[in-house]
Every structure is written in C-alpha cells, then in structure tokens.
Amino acid sequence: MVKAKAFLKRFYVGLVFFLLYSPILVMIVCSFNSSKARTVWGGFTFDWYLQLFRDGAVLEAVRTSLLLTASAALIATALGTLACLGMAAMGKQSQGVLISITNIPMLNADIVTGIAVMLLFVRFMNLGYTSMLIAHVTLCIPYIILNVMPKLRQTNTSIYEAALDLGATPVYAFIKVVLPDLMPAIFSGFLLAFTISLDDFIITYFTKGAGINTISTMLYQEVRRGINPEMYAMSTLLFLAILLILFAANRISETQEEKGA
C-alpha cells in the first residue's frame, strides 16, 4: 500500500515534468531534422547548426537579446538592492506604498505595461534600444525587490551595528557584513529577472524600434511564414548552455557546503 502510494507520487511528478519538457524535446529533435516541414522527419543533419553561425541576422538578434537582458538584469539588480536598503530604513506606511507600486508591473497585464511604456516613449523619445532597455529594467525590478526584501528583514542588524562600533565605515560594514548575507537572495533575484527578461515577448514587441530584433520578435515575424530551423538549433544551444551553467553552479555550491561542514 505504502509502496503503491510512493509509486503514484513519483509517477505524477514525472508525468507533469514530462508534459512540461515535451515541447522542448520536440524542438531539440527539430533542430536535427533535415526536412523543413515541421511534422516530417527527413533524416539527421547538423546543417542548421552550421548555417546558424553564418547567419548574420540571427546572430545579431541573439546578441541584442543577451546584451539587452544582461544589462537590464544588472541595472535592475543594482537599483532594486539599493531600493531595499533604503526601504528598510523607512516607516511601515511608506514601505507599504512602495511595495504596492513595485507590485504594479507584476499584477498588471504585460500587454498593458508594454502599451503604457510605449505611449510614454512615443511622446518623449524615439523607440529603439534604450526604450527596450528601460522597459526591461522596469519589468525586472520587482523580482529583485521581492527576493531581496524578505532576506534583508531576516538579517541581524546588531552585527552591522557591532561592525560600526568596532570602527568600520558604513560602506565597509555593508560590504563585509550585510552583503554576504544578502548575496544568495540577490543572485536568485538576478537569475529570475534575467530569465523573465530573456523570455519576454510582449513588452519587447511594443517598445522595440524599427530595425532592431531580439530572438522573440524575430520568431514572431517568422510565425506566419514558417520558422527557420536555425532558430531551433540556436535555442537548443542556449538551453544546453544554461543547463551546464546551472549544473556547474550547483556542484560548486555543494562542494562549498561540504567544505563548510
């Protein structure tokens, strides 16, 4: 009875993960399919991978996407972490108001956020890389604040004050005492922001200027006329890259924990 229950649980978890990952599996298979027709298997090929590295437009879109996402996530991390430190010093009421404002981009439908930012840009500046960057930073900041703020509340302020009493400058005490404590939260916020920004289509779609493409907007243009299989190859590589990075990061933190213990 207990065994059957354990099996059922595993089966259920496995099934949901399988459903979640099956479209990705399909896409990886497609990246090796020599037929351009999506539902016909034409034989195994590496051609799309080779063509990908000769295709300037696709590489440019990948470069724009990664650059945009990395800059947006970094700027958001800096702004968001500073905001948390400032908010921690505020009274309950102003803190509550700020958190509510922070929640707006998450609670608002993406399409409304995208349109709102676009209306502002069209009025006061041109749409282009900068407008996309600003929109993406705005999209990212809530994820940083919502990750860092709870952690900041848990940190013990007396250690920070002790460091000050012992003669550390506030900046030195912050870097040596508070920051190491916050680092995991800042990092997970950054990772989440990076992922959300990279995956975003709707906000990019409304704020992008003519002639600029990210991976998302390039794909959207191709939806009607048929997807260039190079995109499958590109995504497969991107997926493998992040898988390796996360695996390595996990191993590093595990060995560190072992050393610590």
Partner: peptide, 13 residues
C-alpha cells in the same frame, strides 16, 4: 529552466 527556450518556440512546439 523551460523559460530559457523562447516562449514563442515552446508554443510552436
């Protein structure tokens, strides 16, 4: 992790 495959590609798949 699945979010690292573009949303549009996942829907197309």
């Amino acid at each position: 992790l699945p979010m690292w495959i573009n949303f549009l590609l996942r829907i197309l798949a």
